[in-house]
Amino acid sequence: MPQQNSPAGRSGDFPPFAQRHLISIADLQQHEIVDLLDRAERMIEVSRQERKSLPTLSGKTQINLFFEPSTRTQSSFEIAGKRLGALVVNMSVKTSSVSKGETLVDTAATLNAMRPDVLVVRHSAAGAVELLSQKVGCSVVNAGDGAHEHPTQALLDALTIRNHKGTLTGLTVAICGDIANSRVARSNLLLLGALNVRTRVIAPRTLLPAGIENLATEVFTDMDEGLKGADVVMMLRLQHERANGKMIPSVREYYRFYGLDEARLAHAKPDAIVMHPGPMNRGVEIDPAIADGPRSVITDQVEMGVAVRMAVLDALLPARNAP
């Protein structure tokens, strides 16, 4: 574990973080990614203490603005902010595509007038968080925008892998499932690519987006082939509406060819770990025995999620308010 000797949560040991927002992994330099992972490492220790708090964001206001419902990401950001002493406000905005009324830009202006220090935003449209960040005076963290990016998910995945494998160097990570519609896949491919980790995507052709061969090291349509020699198996959620006969004929066919069960997992390395960003569809993309089995690190991902989000909030806010 890096920086073992440092006392827990002393973010002052890190150089100032030179970004105002976290919108996309593509905006980060390699050293910034490593810096965030190292900061998150320290935050794990904070969360494991009896008094799970640091005063670094005391007096600051964090608004979680979720245009798309998400229990786990929203509560992860909420706990992260609260452990750092911020005042956290959750706003869930129901939007229907038919009658939107107030535009995103109007919402941004309204919230901006409340003088938050950071907005954590999830929206169903790619680019919506970027648009919002251009209209507000505070830091913005992307908690998922359409099929574009989910940067804190990629960071927490990398941290989970690093903690289980000791390093990211030399590993092969296989990402399986609905690549076309997955922001998790995009952020992971960008982050792992930036750290020179070998990436594979495995999916039926209908769920592989155009040009994906430029983002992943290797592309597979056969799961057994794709899993061969993998150190990490990252499963993606299959939205049920995808299995409607347009992209995928049925859930049972999908599970037969792309579901992760014991037999398939046997193709990966014996010490391969299994990840999933959640929420899982047991019996659709993953066998319950695997999801809850010894090689699953899915609950660790949730713990790393809080640490990563603490690190991100801690890194962005001082940078914003530096003289």
Partner: peptide, 13 residues
């Protein structure tokens, strides 16, 4: 336009 650029932006091509 469908292609790598749309894929990177997470937009449908």
């Amino acid at each position: 336009n469908e292609g790598l650029f749309a894929t990177v932006l997470g937009l449908k091509g």
